[in-house]
Write a protein that binds this DNA or RNA. Structure first.
Length: 99
DNA sequence: CCTCAGGCTTGCC
DNA sequence: TGGCAAGCCTGAG
C-alpha cells in the first residue's frame, strides 16, 4: 500500500471538529520525522475531495499551509467547530485527535 | 519572534 | 536507473 493510501486512511479517522498535526499523522503511518513528506503528499493529494487535509495543522498550533489558500482552510475549520484566531488554533490540545 | 538545519517522499531529468 | 530539488513541517538556537 502506498504511503498516500495510509495517510488518507488515517486522516479519515479524524472526526469533524477535531484535528491532528503533521507530525502525529507522520508517526501514525510509520514515519518518525516525515512531517514534510506528509505535507508533500497533502499538497499533491490525489483525492482532494475525500481527504480532509484542512484538519491537519502544525504542531505549534498554527494553521500551516493549504493548497487552496490558508484562508480557505481556516474557514473550513471554523465551520466544523474549530475556533481560529490570528492564524492559530484555539484550544489545540482540546481539539487534537489521537490515533 | 526570526533563522537554520534536519529528515522523508515524490517527481522530473 | 540515479541524483537532485522542493514541499501545507519542526525543534533548537
Amino acid at each position: 500500500m502506498n504511503l498516500q493510501q495510509k495517510v488518507y486512511k488515517k486522516l479519515l479517522q479524524v472526526p469533524k471538529g477535531q484535528i491532528t498535526t503533521y507530525g502525529e499523522l507522520a508517526k501514525a503511518v510509520g514515519l518518525k520525522n516525515g512531517q514534510r513528506a506528509i505535507g508533500k503528499i497533502m499538497n499533491k493529494n490525489p483525492y482532494p475531495v475525500i481527504i480532509p487535509c484542512h484538519r491537519v495543522v502544525m504542531s505549534t498550533g498554527k494553521i500551516g499551509g493549504y493548497a487552496y489558500g490558508e484562508h480557505v482552510k481556516t474557514k473550513m475549520l471554523s465551520d466544523e467547530g474549530v475556533k481560529i484566531e490570528n492564524g492559530k488554533i484555539l484550544e489545540l490540545e482540546n481539539k487534537l485527535y489521537r490515533f
